Structure formats: C-alpha cells, structure tokens
Simulated assay, not measured.
Amino acid sequence: MLTALLAPCANTNSTTAAKAAAPARDIGKPPTAEQAFESMALHVKSVRAERAVTAEDDPNHLMGRPGQYTSKVVFTDIRIPQADAQMY
C-alpha cells in the first residue's frame, strides 16, 4: 500500500474532457484525500483505491487533530510489486 502527498499543479495540456470529468469541489476549501485521489486516478490509470481512513480507524490517531491531516486514502499502484510496497 502507498501513501502519497498530493499537491495541485498546472497542466497547460489538459483536455476539456479531463477537466469535465474531474470531481467537483468547493473552490474555497482544499480537496479531501478522496477528491485528490479521484483526480489523480483520472491521469494515473494504475492506481486503485483500497479505502478511505476514518478518525476511528486511523492507525496514527492523528486525523482531525490540530496541525495534522483531515482526510486520508490508502491506495495501491499495480506497477509496484506488493513485496516492495510499505505503508507509512
């Protein structure tokens, strides 16, 4: 399983179809992990969502705490052998 830090970046070669297929979100708020994953999955076809982590099952017990993260998604990339993948 993989964990990734996602940050928005500009792509001047984006197609109208990809923009139309992007998940809708409130522009005033940062994307949730689920929204960021959906957007990434539009362009990286080898990723698969495993599950969304909740505050109740967060192994780090940091979700929602001050200065920590507000959402988290566990996902895999089929290009990486399972034996080489680690969850951080």
Rank of each mutant, 00 (worst) to 15 (best):
S46Q: 09
S46E: 14
S46L: 09
S46A: 15
V47R: 06
V47L: 09
R48W: 02
R48L: 05
R48E: 15
R48N: 12
R48S: 14
A49I: 13
A49R: 12
A49D: 01
A49Q: 12
E50V: 15
E50S: 06
R51G: 04
R51T: 06
R51H: 04
A52M: 11
V53K: 01
V53R: 03
V53H: 02
T54Y: 08
T54V: 03
T54M: 10
T54I: 03
T54P: 05
T54L: 06
T54Q: 06
A55Q: 13
A55V: 07
A55R: 13
A55N: 00
A55L: 04
A55H: 01
A55K: 14
E56H: 00
D57R: 01
D58F: 10
D58G: 07
D58Y: 10
D58V: 01
P59W: 03
P59H: 08
P59Y: 03
P59M: 09
P59S: 10
N60H: 14
H61T: 10
H61Q: 15
L62D: 10
M63L: 14
M63C: 01
M63N: 07
R65H: 11
R65V: 03
P66H: 12
P66I: 08
P66S: 10
P66F: 10
G67P: 08
G67R: 08
Q68T: 03
Q68N: 12
Q68W: 13
Q68L: 08
Q68C: 13
Q68I: 00
Q68F: 15
Q68E: 15
Y69L: 07
Y69M: 07
Y69E: 01
Y69K: 03
Y69I: 05
T70P: 00
T70V: 11
T70M: 12
T70R: 09
T70G: 14
S71K: 04
S71I: 02
S71R: 00
K72C: 13
K72Q: 11
K72A: 07
K72I: 00
V73W: 03
V73M: 14
V73S: 02
V73P: 00
V73E: 02
V73T: 02
V74E: 04
F75D: 00
F75W: 10
F75N: 05
T76D: 09
T76E: 04
T76Y: 03
T76G: 06
D77C: 12
D77K: 06
D77I: 05
I78L: 14
I78E: 14
R79E: 14
I80A: 07
I80T: 04
I80Q: 05
I80K: 08
P81V: 07
P81S: 10
P81M: 08
Q82I: 10
Q82L: 11
Q82V: 15
Q82T: 13
A83D: 11
A83F: 12
A83R: 13
A83T: 09
